[in-house]
Amino acid sequence: MEAITSFVDQYGALMAQGTWDTVVMTVLSTAFAYVIGIPLGVLLILTAPGGLHPHRVFNSVLGWLVNIGRSIPFIILIVFMIPMTRAIVGTSLGVAAAIVPLTVAAAPFVARMVEQSLAEIDGGLVEAAQSFGASTWQIIRKVFLVESLPSLIRGLSITFITLFGFVAMAGTVGAGGIGDIAIRYGYQRYQDDVMVVAIVLCIVVVQLAQSLANVIARKIDHRSR
């Protein structure tokens, strides 16, 4: 008990701040990635062969760009984007700076997940909406996004957890958060207790995020009722 009390007194505030910074970076970068990724995924499905507005060249070029974004390892991307990050937020260190490469890394991933979710929608629903004179925008809002919402929510949890791991890597280059604490204290100073607590905190956050996403997806999925 004394050991726990001593650890909390010495590292409690540090671990709490690191956890908060990690969650903030993950949540904000996930949100920004979906702001970019959802339109990209919709465009991919609309312009695909058999889509509402098929366009082979546009679809191929967009798919090629998305694949390039998915091909770059994050640790390389974060270093490569340092000049751009400085131009956007004024620094390459800290929470705000980490959000920029995290968003860029996640947006292509989100685009492909959105594309896959929309591709699973029953084509009969789209045809029915077209027969009632629905516009493309109405089909996107009331058919594509509504019917794929449970899948999108589950994909959201995957994105969050993936970015949570990326945030730990970002900590190695000055982003802060749990990863930075684990490296500076647990690895460089050989403090195994700090490393263990950092791992436990990561597990707790990931489990909470996955459980919450599963509950929400089940509640809104009319097919499971």
Rank of each mutant, 00 (worst) to 15 (best):
I216N: 03
Y34T: 03
F164N: 00
N67D: 13
M81E: 05
W64Q: 14
T26E: 06
R112M: 10
G177P: 08
G176T: 09
G171L: 10
S71T: 14
G177M: 12
P108A: 11
L208Q: 00
Q207P: 00
L77Y: 10
G63N: 12
V197W: 08
H55D: 14
V35E: 09
I139V: 15
I121H: 06
T47A: 07
V66K: 11
I45A: 11
A31S: 08
V197L: 03
S157W: 00
P150F: 13
I99A: 02
M113W: 05
L145G: 01
R154T: 13
G174A: 01
A217E: 10
G165R: 04
V24G: 00
T19A: 14
I178V: 13
I153H: 07
T47K: 11
A87C: 01
E120G: 08
A105D: 08
L40P: 09
I199T: 04
W137M: 15
F80K: 03
G177W: 14
R112E: 06
V89I: 00
Q138C: 07
T26H: 06
W64E: 07
F58H: 02
G12E: 12
V79D: 10
R189I: 15
H222E: 05
A170P: 05
I139H: 07
H55L: 12
K219C: 05
L14C: 00
V61G: 07
L40E: 05
Y34H: 11
F109L: 10
Y34E: 05
I153L: 07
A217S: 11
S29Y: 06
R223E: 09
A175I: 09
V173T: 07
F132S: 11
T103E: 07
D21S: 10
F80C: 11
G179A: 10
S148R: 01
M195P: 01
V79W: 03
S6D: 06
I161M: 07
T26G: 10
R112W: 08
P54I: 03
H222M: 08
R225W: 15
L118G: 12
P54T: 09
I45V: 13
I78L: 13
A107S: 04
V95T: 15
F7M: 02
Q10T: 12
L118Q: 13
W137P: 06
A213R: 15
D21F: 15
A198M: 07
G123Q: 13
A48I: 02
P83K: 11
P83R: 15
I4T: 07
A217L: 03
S131T: 12
S148G: 01
Y34F: 09
G69S: 06
E2L: 07
R112N: 05
S117Y: 12
G124L: 03
T47L: 02
K142Y: 14
S71Q: 07
S60W: 15
G133C: 00
R70T: 06
I220P: 01
L62N: 04
I158R: 14
T159L: 15
Q138S: 12
G18W: 05
T103W: 09
A111C: 09
I161V: 12
M81H: 06
H53Y: 13
L62D: 04
V100W: 08
A98C: 12
A168R: 00
F74L: 03
P150E: 05
F7N: 01
G177R: 06
I181Y: 06
A107F: 00
G90P: 05
L40A: 13
A98F: 05
D193N: 15
